[in-house]
């Protein structure tokens, strides 16, 4: 056993144990680690935004390339803060409109692309039991989510098949999620036993 002498490993190990202390019950150590994570994460997020956007996309083009066009989004961004002043709060709608417009404009072609790709992939190209099951599954799932028709009679029976497929998909997604969490747990235990305590190699 070779206990780590690295200060940073100790920090990570103590924080890991503080989070796991929640398995016993909610306690001050867990709360400390939880609040610290939120604080550090937003601090990190702001720093990344500052570096990747403000410096790279605003400061550098403005100072080195004399590209004054970048002042427009900067001013639009600053207009967001107008919502703190009641008499000019309406100005914040302009940057919001820009962001929503760009987001919407981006989503239209990508939605079309997704639609066509998925429909194309669903088309049966050969007689295969798997492909037939996929076609039935896709159509019945879509019918399950189609509420313009009452789910009675034939539609009801098809939507019943749809819910069966949905349950299988949710079960598979759930199983996958648990396995991902368990593998993270194994990773943390390996860190504690190997990097920190040096019990295992």
């Amino acid at each position: 056993m070779a206990l780590s002498s690295n200060f940073w490993i100790w920090i990570a190990a103590i924080l890991t144990l503080a989070i796991y202390s929640f398995l016993y019950k909610d306690n001050p150590f867990y709360k400390f680690a939880e609040y610290l994570l939120v604080g550090i994460s937003i601090g990190y997020g702001i720093s990344v935004y500052w570096h990747n956007t403000i410096i790279t996309k605003v400061f550098n083009p403005l100072v080195y390339d004399k590209n004054f066009l970048v002042l427009i989004p900067l001013l639009l961004g600053l207009l967001m803060f107008s919502r703190f002043f009641k008499n000019v709060a309406y100005l914040s709608r302009i940057p919001i409109a820009f962001v929503v417009g760009a987001g919407t404009g981006l989503s239209v072609p990508s939605s079309f692309e997704f639609l066509f790709k998925q429909v194309y992939a669903t088309m049966p190209t050969k007689l295969d039991i798997g492909i037939i099951i996929i076609v039935i599954g896709v159509i019945s799932t879509l019918i399950y989510f189609f509420f313009s028709l009452e789910h009675k009679g034939f539609v009801g029976r098809v939507s019943r098949v749809g819910i069966t497929f949905i349950m299988v998909a949710f079960g598979a997604a759930f199983g996958y999620t648990i396995m991902a969490r368990v593998s993270l747990f194994i990773g943390r235990i390996q860190f504690l036993l190997s990097d920190w305590l040096g019990i295992i190699k």
Partner: peptide, 9 residues
């Protein structure tokens, strides 16, 4: 197969 079908739907 079944998971893919529902996910696609």
């Amino acid at each position: 197969v079944p998971q893919m079908a529902a996910k696609r739907g």
